[in-house]
């Protein structure tokens, strides 16, 4: 077996695909670097990500499975599932072996089906995050939010926030993956830093503008008052707003 190690990036994965074909490797398994376990009888190669190779694979796939297919591959990638490379690789091979037709809707193939399921999962999380981000205004005039999404959705929610909040600086920080996206009134950039969760702690509060707490309080007041007690239905409530998200929802903060 040939094990190809890549650097956890989508480009890295595409480079690995390129090399698998370039060197006509048999029995390929593409694995994230540092995640491989000891394998007897396997040849392990480290792939160095190269943008031109990735780009060529990308363009080829585009002709085979179209934008929908690439979209699905990207969302699959963001799911961070441990089997995702196996399914991506299977779909890539299936597409290349059937270059006469677009196979991306052929759900009789288990990995094609699997990709559409990954896509759905990640898409759902994207929607949730577009809804559940709660900004707090900091002293340096940045609207700041923390999230802990189930999947790595920052890259796909950036556009939504950029379209919507064009006249304010904002940052959304993924606590689980310790990176964020930052909009500086012109463009969105990735930022990595050990921001930890200091805004959650008491001493972080002095970083917030004076009115911030008051607006949070007003929002909590509103949330309470807009509920109709005679219709209360906690089961439905939790189904829509699962408890694991409460930590970052202003309306759910203890008052």
């Amino acid at each position: 077996m040939n094990i190809l190690l890549y650097d956890h990036t989508f480009e890295g994965f595409l480079t690995a695909v390129f090399e698998a074909y370039e060197f006509k490797l048999k029995q390929v398994k593409i694995v994230k670097e540092a995640l491989q376990t000891e394998q007897l009888f396997a040849k392990i190669t480290k792939v160095f990500t190269q943008a031109p190779k990735a780009e060529r694979v990308y363009q080829k796939l585009k002709t085979l499975i179209g934008d929908l297919g690439l979209h699905r591959m990207l969302y699959t990638f963001l799911s961070e599932d441990e089997d995702l490379e196996t399914h991506l690789w299977a779909v890539v091979q299936y597409a290349l072996n059937n270059s006469k037709r677009n196979i991306i809707q052929d759900f009789s193939h288990p990995s094609v089906l699997k990709l559409s399921q990954y896509e759905q999962m990640v898409h759902r999380e994207k929607h949730r995050m577009e809804a559940f981000v709660r900004f707090r205004l900091t002293l340096d005039d940045i609207y700041y939010a923390e999230i802990e999404p189930d999947f790595n959705v920052l890259p796909v929610i950036a556009k939504h926030f950029k379209d919507r909040y064009q006249d304010q600086k904002w940052m959304i920080f993924d606590q689980k993956r310790t990176y964020g996206i930052y909009y500086d009134l012109h463009k969105v950039e990735l930022v990595e830093m050990k921001f930890a969760n200091h805004l959650n702690k008491q001493e972080g509060l002095e970083m917030l503008v004076k009115d911030e707490k008051l607006y949070q309080h007003l929002w909590q007041t509103y949330f309470k008052k807009t509920t109709i007690q005679a219709r209360k239905n906690s089961r439905l409530h939790i189904q829509h707003v699962p408890k694991r998200y409460w930590k970052y929802l202003t309306e759910k903060f203890p008052v």
Partner: peptide, 13 residues
């Protein structure tokens, strides 16, 4: 239209 939250009676906010 995005539901940013849900009330305790399960309605979209």
């Amino acid at each position: 239209g995005i539901c940013h939250s849900y009330t305790e009676d399960g309605r979209c906010v």
